[in-house]
Amino acid sequence: MTRIDLDDLPPRVAQQLAGVAAGEEVLLVRGGVVEARLVGAETPAAPAEEAEGDVERMGEVMEHFRSMIEDDF
């Protein structure tokens, strides 16, 4: 599979590709000939459990950081 990083493309092209809806087709055309056909995919949402774990972990990190700062000052 070929992978194209949106950061490597001109901003206008990257914005158009990033805005493709799920199931929407994009045609890549050169000289009036269709070179490729892309279909937008659904981006899976992150499970709520993982998001909650990330929030809890961030709270722990921030609490540790705050206690280190308080100890130094």
Rank of each mutant, 00 (worst) to 15 (best):
E60Y: 15
R12H: 14
G19S: 12
P10A: 06
A14N: 14
R37H: 02
E56V: 11
G59E: 01
A21D: 04
R66Q: 10
E56I: 09
T2N: 11
E35N: 12
D5M: 05
R37Y: 00
A48T: 07
R3C: 07
A36C: 02
E25V: 06
M62Q: 03
E63V: 00
R66A: 04
E52A: 12
S67K: 03
G32S: 00
R12C: 11
E52S: 09
L28T: 08
V13H: 08
L38M: 07
V20F: 00
R57I: 07
L6P: 04
E35T: 07
E52Y: 09
E52M: 10
R66L: 07
L6T: 13
M68E: 03
A14E: 13
A14V: 11
G23R: 03
R12P: 07
E56S: 10
E56D: 15
A46S: 13
G31C: 08
L6V: 13
L17Q: 00
G59T: 02
L9V: 01
D5W: 04
S67A: 04
E24K: 07
P47F: 11
M1G: 10
D5R: 03
L6E: 15
V29C: 00
E35F: 07
T2S: 13
E70P: 03
S67D: 06
E42Q: 15
T2V: 09
V13R: 08
